[in-house]
Amino acid sequence: MNKLQVDFCGKKLKNPVVMASGTFGFGKEYGEIYDISKLGGISGKGLTINPKAGNDGIRVWETKAGMINSVGLENPGVDAFLKNDWDFMKRSGTQPIINVGGSSIETYKEACIKLNNAGVDFIELNISCPNVKEGGMAFGIIPKMAYEIVSQIRPLVDGILMVKLSPNATNIVEVAKACEDAGADAVSLVNTFKALAIDIKSKKAVFNNIYAGLSGPCIMPIALRMVHEVSKAIKIPVMGMGGICTWEDAIMFLMAGAKAVQIGTLNFTDTKAGLKIIKGLEDYVEKENLNHISDVIGII
């Protein structure tokens, strides 16, 4: 019996370790380094209906125990993805999760309809994108806007709809509840924290967009707290992430209520991080004499 296999919204994941969107491409590059079929799943690079060239200027800045990124959702667009990458993901031997972003509800809808028609059955909706029509405020910041977008996308998606929450929300628990009320099957959290870097030599903000997203071990305890709060407040499953750097961190997210975890920035620190965390979980289950990894889920 595979003691790590988890049921996530009816999908059997080999283990609760999923690679986070934006850190793993569509799996091809890491697939040249190790056997990615050993992973629980891969959340692909965030897609938009049309291709996006991404942001100009510096896109990454290391901080103490973390990094800030401003990639600006560079991606090939839904059509090119379906043509060039979807087949690879389907055949990768692990659960593909397709991450979708947009600049308006209409663009989210168009992308989801196309992906749904192509047979994509697990969508992660990134609601941290700015809503261009509403002055650039991210969709996922206030519960009302989150409800609005999720309820409009829900009828268009036959498969699993998991909403990725922003830690920059006014109240992440209320946003999670709004997503549940709007028909989401699951939520994943947290996305990156809005942050600022300043170059004191040039006396300018490092990033052209001024603010950008902080990730890495420095956010882990806050992300863990948010996963705990959200898990207690909703009934749908939670995929937890935010600065996971060791298998011990992954266990903590499971104990805090996450049914599975995502590994993001750590892939940069160590390309084989996913495998090492899975091995750590296997050893832990044995050492602690657990019947199954789910014995520890939500025990805190």
Binding site: G22, T23, F24, G25, E29, Y30, E32, I33, K45, G54, R59, V60, M67, N69, V71, E74, T265, N267, F268, T271
Partner: peptide, 9 residues
């Protein structure tokens, strides 16, 4: 960041 072509930074 990644060095392998996945992160686009």
């Amino acid at each position: 960041a990644c060095g392998v072509g996945a992160c686009l930074v």
